[in-house]
Design a protein around this nucleic acid. Structure first.
Length: 371
DNA sequence: CGATTTTGACCCGCGC
DNA sequence: GCGCGGGTCAAAATCG
């Protein structure tokens, strides 16, 4: 079915082939061709059965994930309205751009994560978490640019060093400020998710769109290539990249000191303009500029592993389309199938996982055979 | 020279 | 009340 099957076959059959090959040389005259073929066929059948079971397990995992996600969205939807009205968006004096509460109330929460243990500690966090969506992006290890191409220009206005986190926390404002109130900050990611993804070597990408106000991206601790981008809130405008094409407009970048790979960038506020790279492009015939963020269905896979390039540069029309179809797409059989295959192929690239899996399967086979 | 980044200080909220 | 941490400000430094 997929790489997992092939990998498992390789894991299990390759050594045997070597052994059998030597046996054929040494004892070849003792073993008949039929016996050899029969044993190989039996082995193949056993591995195939194991593959089927694993396929079912992965499918069940995906379905459970979708179910949990739906539950989470429902819970967020129940808790959202009063919180938006009761809680200020920002704690500091002049920064309060709360006149967009109408937009907040109309947000369709594509809340995918919001599983942080601190999600319900503070009112402000409740607001944010209610609209959190997180994109797990696996990037090439050699790619240290950490650019999440959202099409906007950002200006760094502050940086904080966290005692526990060697990576500094940076704060960005939209370059169109003060007319545009959007801000962005790097924060710690939910490390459990990151570590899980690192272990699984899986890239799961949600469908962020330009209406979201905030955005978090964080690299993981280990020398991995998982980038977690969390999107919160909504923009009230198109990215400036649609207003004029400026190369390298994306500034959502945080390089870690020791090649750490997970970055969290949080957006606040709503852009009231297009991204520079798209300001000019809107005059063109195509209204979908640089729409490569939703690559879940055709994620470019690099040699280092499955990679999904997070490029949020796109027009509003595409954004609307993505918002309208993101959920159905995620639940569509094609996406499910893709996720299953993607997860499986990613899983097989983890030697620890494949070794443990092979051990478990072999152990189960031996136990069943011995009975 | 204007825009951007750096960096230390400050403000504010929260927990003890 | 105090300390800590998150977030912001603003002057200085740097860059193109």
């Amino acid at each position: 079915m997929f790489d997992l099957a092939r990998s498992l076959q390789l894991e299990t059959t390759t050594p045997k082939e070597e052994t059998n090959g030597s046996n054929l040389v040494v004892f070849g005259r003792k073993l008949s061709v039929k016996e050899e073929t029969g044993s190989l066929v039996d082995e193949l059948n056993r591995v195939s059965e194991g593959n089927k079971k694993l396929t079912h397990m992965l499918t069940a995992m995906c379905e459970s994930y979708n179910a949990l996600q739906s539950q989470l969205v429902d819970l967020m939807g129940k808790n959202k309205p009063e919180k938006f009205e009761l809680s200020p968006t920002k704690k500091r004096k002049s920064e309060s751009s709360n006149d967009d509460d109408d937009n907040k109330n109309s947000i369709i929460g594509n809340s995918e994560s919001s599983t942080d243990e601190e999600s319900y500690k503070k009112p402000r966090e409740e607001i944010i978490k209610a609209k959190v969506s997180r994109a797990y992006v696996r990037t090439d290890a050699s790619d240290t640019s950490l650019v999440v191409k959202d099409g906007y220009q950002w200006r760094k206005y502050g940086q904080k060093v966290n005692r526990d986190n060697p990576s500094p926390r940076a704060y960005f404002k939209c370059s169109f400020a003060p007319s545009c109130p959007v801000k962005k900050r790097y924060k710690e990611a939910l490390m459990t998710s990151v570590l899980l993804l690192q272990h699984m070597k899986v890239s799961i990408i949600t469908f962020p769109h330009l209406k979201w106000k905030q955005h978090q991206v964080q690299r993981s601790v280990d020398d991995q290539c998982v980038v977690v981008a969390t999107y919160e809130g909504e923009h009230n405008h198109l990215p400036p990249s649609q207003m004029e094409a400026t190369s390298g407009s994306s500034s959502c970048v945080q390089r870690s000191v020791d090649d750490q790979c997970v970055v969290v960038a949080t957006y606040e506020g709503e852009h009231n303009h297009l991204p520079p790279s798209q300001m000019e492009a809107t005059s063109g015939s195509s209204s979908c500029v640089g729409l490569s963020s939703v690559h879940a269905g055709s994620a470019p896979v690099k040699s280092a592993g499955p990679t999904i390039t997070l490029d949020l540069t796109k027009s509003k029309s595409c954004d609307e389309e993505a918002r309208n179809h993101s959920k159905p797409k995620m639940n569509s059989p094609e996406i499910k199938q893709y996720l299953v295959e993607h997860m499986a192929s990613s899983l097989t690239k983890d030697p620890n996982f494949t070794a443990a899996l092979a051990a478990a399967i072999s152990g189960r086979m031996y136990s069943t055979n011995s009975k």
